[in-house]
Amino acid sequence: MLHTVNKSSSEKSTLVSCLRLAADDADILLIEDAVYAAMTGTQTESIIQSALARYQIYVLEPDLECRGLDKSRLISGVKAVGYDGFVELSVKNSAVHSWL
């Protein structure tokens, strides 16, 4: 299953709940305000770090660019994808769960 998260992890518990409940082979895609969580140096960095052992974690590149976030400062292991990548992930997974 593909899980998308769109809320900031420093404001809402959405990302934490998603990572607690997503099955081991899930793909996680961070979009909109959730993309801040993919950056190094944040207080929630360890959440992503430990989740990388279980999941493939992606982040939507146009949402990074919009917010002035530099790909070179992504947590290593997180992959940036464009809209084409978003589509591929949606096709590859049998279902999409949009966390709101």
């Binding site: 146009p62 949402d63 660019e65 919009c66 917010r67 002035g68 976030l69 530099d70």
Partner: peptide, 9 residues
């Protein structure tokens, strides 16, 4: 934050 580019969206 510096360098925002919301024109992409």
């Amino acid at each position: 934050r510096r360098g925002q580019n919301p024109a992409v969206l």
